[in-house]
Design a protein around this nucleic acid. Structure first.
Length: 713
DNA sequence: TTTAGGG
DNA sequence: CCCTAAA
């Protein structure tokens, strides 16, 4: 039985983020926001909702009758398909539909969440409702756009699709300066959209808000805004505003719908306080995302609470040299592993640190927002977890808003690397569960938010952004946020080492160390999983090089692979951008050194080893390997040599002192004998090994060295 | 890449 | 098992 290992980097993206960021909302709202749905259902619903929304808007506009634009959330469902149909009528083409289906919407889908630091309530009010509205609006927009101009719609569509298909494109666009798909799309569409929205907005508060935001700002970008002067702790602190639960729901909602655009400037204004906006950016892969979302969602909730404790867990310290080179083992190794245990090796041996590294994945991107009307929006920096860094560069110029607020947009947080090992025979479902558990374990452990600048953690929570340099354009580029284990001291979740991969639930991937062998396995075992692993690796590498990680690797499912790949490719496109963010590099490196899983030699192996050494001598480990362990992929000649070394040692010590699986004394005796023999003949034997073998076998006692060893023989 | 040894 | 200096 072979075990397959997946090394995966989950990108929580928006999800994770959400959790962290989102403010509390009344339960009622939450519920409302998300009727519970399956992913697919969700999509459908989303679609429907969108359609319905669009429809309503259109109708209203057309008729100039007031509609319940609010429709928001509650009613969407009711409207359902009919709405959609209507929408189509308006539309010259099913563009909308396609987009949705394809998930193209996702591209555009950027969700912004605003939270006011101090105002949970506000958050409650705005956030969720807004979210819904926004989604709706957005959809509406799209729809509207389609209606407005068929051409446009077409273009839009293509754009979107493209985006989905190729992240690269998407990124490029972003980089160009418009993170939003909208931009890429024709402006006309937007305008039309805006108009519609605004019109409607008046009718309903919710819409209005949405409208305003949209019109004023680029929906895509968003983040938190706060005065530069404020203390990083307070202002920046996302956690303060968030409520796990709401987030979860929110994210979910978002996921289903895919659209999320929000600017909450208005909200901010209302509250007079600084509000942080978080925008989650989420490129979606059709399938993968959903699943991931699903999996992750629940977890985030848990984590969310902990997020509140905003702290900088540790400093940049995370750097560790990773020793990977060793994957050298024999590549030809087969995947023979029954159960592999993985362990992650931390160079510093600190689990925490390691963990940390994995966690901190987000990258920050700054994007300039144009505040048409909104001052707040004027400058924005966006943090991206994805690879979208490009936008950062392009926009760096305007990071600072006039009002001295600094805006941060965090597109997503990544989940730390997770190593998963599953039996080849495990079901996909079990794999999913395993991943879920891993993620859960991580999140469940609690996480903290860390702020990185130039790759270093900013530990002083009391300094202001200005003091810290976070208010500076130059630094925003290098700004990053990390999710770190909340309790350094409480490595509870992470430390666990899952021994039995097969046990789906039991595994705690976080801590799991990855065995060095994994690489070998990957290469050797061709299968979806393997590919995945490879993919993941690639991704990792990329990430390591650039901050941008590819955020979404949908590891969970085979089906996701394609997407993942696409994602992976993306980063390359934005090399430049990537370079910009050094943050992750450090953190990344730190994570992955691992030690191979330990695999005690069985008696039979020992016997084989002894046999081989008796014949070949002790200086020819490679030959020993070839002769007796050719098929033991996990045994390298170095391993054999080491084993021999230990055997000799073992043979020399008292039986009571021996540990592990007892080796028959007979073998130990042979070990000593052979060792003595070869020790004496080192030089000579080199040329004679062949003969030696014969001698050995035929007449062990004949060996010259007999004196030393001979007694036994 | 292998060996040989120390860690 | 890991890591390396040497070969």
């Amino acid at each position: 039985m072979r075990d397959m290992k997946l090394k995966k980097r989950l990108d929580c993206g928006p999800h994770g983020f959400h959790v962290a960021i989102i403010p509390k909302a009344p339960r009622s709202i939450r519920r409302r926001v998300h009727p519970k749905k399956t992913d697919e259902d969700g999509q459908v619903c989303a679609f429907e909702l969108l359609a319905s929304l669009a429809r309503q808007i259109l109708q209203e506009e057309t008729e100039s009758s007031s509609a319940s634009s609010n429709a928001s959330g509650n009613d969407h469902a009711a409207i359902g398909k009919d709405a959609v149909e209507d929408g189509r009528q308006y539309e010259d083409k099913p563009v909308k539909t396609e987009c949705l289906d394809q998930g193209s919407c996702e591209v555009s889908a950027v969700v912004t969440e605003s939270a006011s630091l101090n105002c949970d309530q506000k958050c409650l009010l705005n956030e969720f409702p807004l979210a819904e509205d926004d989604d709706i609006l957005e959809r509406t927009l799209k729809t509207t756009g389609s209606n407005s101009s068929g051409k446009i719609g077409g273009d839009l569509k293509s754009e979107i699709c493209k985006s989905n298909m190729l992240k690269g494109n998407f990124l490029s666009k972003v980089e160009g300066g418009s993170p939003n798909y909208r931009e890429s799309c024709s402006n006309s569409v937007e305008n039309a959209f805006e108009q519609l929205v605004e019109t409607k907005a008046k009718e309903t508060g919710g819409l209005k808000m949405a409208t305003t935001r949209i019109s004023k700002e680029d929906p895509t970008e968003l983040c938190m805004t706060f005065p530069a002067s404020t203390d990083s702790d307070k202002d920046v602190n996302l956690p303060s505003c968030r409520d796990p639960v709401p987030n979860a729901s929110f994210s979910r909602h978002r996921n289903d719908i895919k659209l999320g655009i929000r600017d909450d400037n208005d909200n901010l204004s209302r509250f007079n306080k600084f509000s942080n906006k978080l925008k989650v950016y989420r490129p979606v892969t059709r399938i993968g995302d959903r699943r991931i979302r699903k999996l992750l969602t629940s977890k985030y909730w848990k984590s969310a609470p902990k997020l509140k404790d905003f702290e900088h867990p540790r400093t940049d310290g995370g750097m560790r040299p990773s020793h990977r080179k060793r994957k050298t083992c024999y590549n030809h190794e087969k995947c023979h592993r029954d159960v592999l245990y993985k362990r992650r090796r931390f160079y510093d041996r600190s689990s925490v640190e390691t963990f940390d590294g994995g966690f901190s994945c987000e990258s920050v991107t700054n994007s300039p927002e144009k505040g048409r009307n909104g001052d707040k929006c004027i400058s924005g920096s966006i943090l991206q977890a994805n690879g979208m860094t490009s936008s950062v560069k392009g926009h760096q110029s305007s990071l600072r808003s006039k009002d001295s607020n600094v805006k941060f947009s965090i597109k997503s947080f990544k989940v730390p690397e997770i190593f998963i090992e599953v039996s080849e025979t495990a079901t996909v479902g079990s794999l999913k569960r395993t991943v879920m558990n891993a993620v859960t374990a991580i999140l469940g452990g609690g996480i903290r938010v860390g702020v990185l600048m130039h790759g270093k953690k900013v530990r002083d929570d009391n300094r202001t952004l200005s003091q810290t340099g976070l208010a500076s354009e130059d630094n925003l580029d290098t700004l990053g946020f990390t999710l770190d284990p909340s309790s350094v001291e409480a490595p509870a979740p992470p430390l666990v080492c899952p021994e039995d991969p097969p046990l789906l639930l039991s595994n705690a991937p976080q801590l799991v160390a990855r065995s060095l062998e994994t690489p070998a396995l990957d290469s050797e075992c061709p299968n979806a999983l393997t590919d995945l692993a490879l993919l993941t690796k690639t991704e990792t590498l990329v990430e390591s090089n650039h901050e941008q990680a590819i955020s979404h690797t949908d590891i969970l499912t085979e089906s996701t692979l394609p997407d993942s790949r696409a994602l992976v490719a993306v980063p390359a496109l934005n090399v430049e951008a990537l370079a910009v963010v050094p943050l992750n590099q450090k953190s990344r490196r730190s994570d992955i050194a691992q030690r191979r899983t330990r695999r005690p030699f069985s008696v039979s192996e020992v016997e084989a080893l002894v046999q081989a050494v008796e014949e070949l001598g002790t200086g020819r480990w490679r030959d020993v390997k070839l002769r007796s362990f050719e098929d033991a992929d996990h045994r390298t000649y170095v391993d054999l040599k080491d084993k021999w070394k230990t055997l000799v040692h073992t043979a020399r010590i008292a039986p009571q002192q021996r540990r592990g699986e007892p080796v028959p004394q007979e073998l130990l005796d042979r070990v000593l004998d052979a060792h003595s023999y070869w020790s004496q003949h080192q030089a000579k034997q080199q040329g004679k090994h062949q003969a030696a073998g014969v001698l050995k076998i035929e007449a062990p006692t004949d060996h010259p060295n007999g004196a030393t060893t001979g007694n036994q023989l």
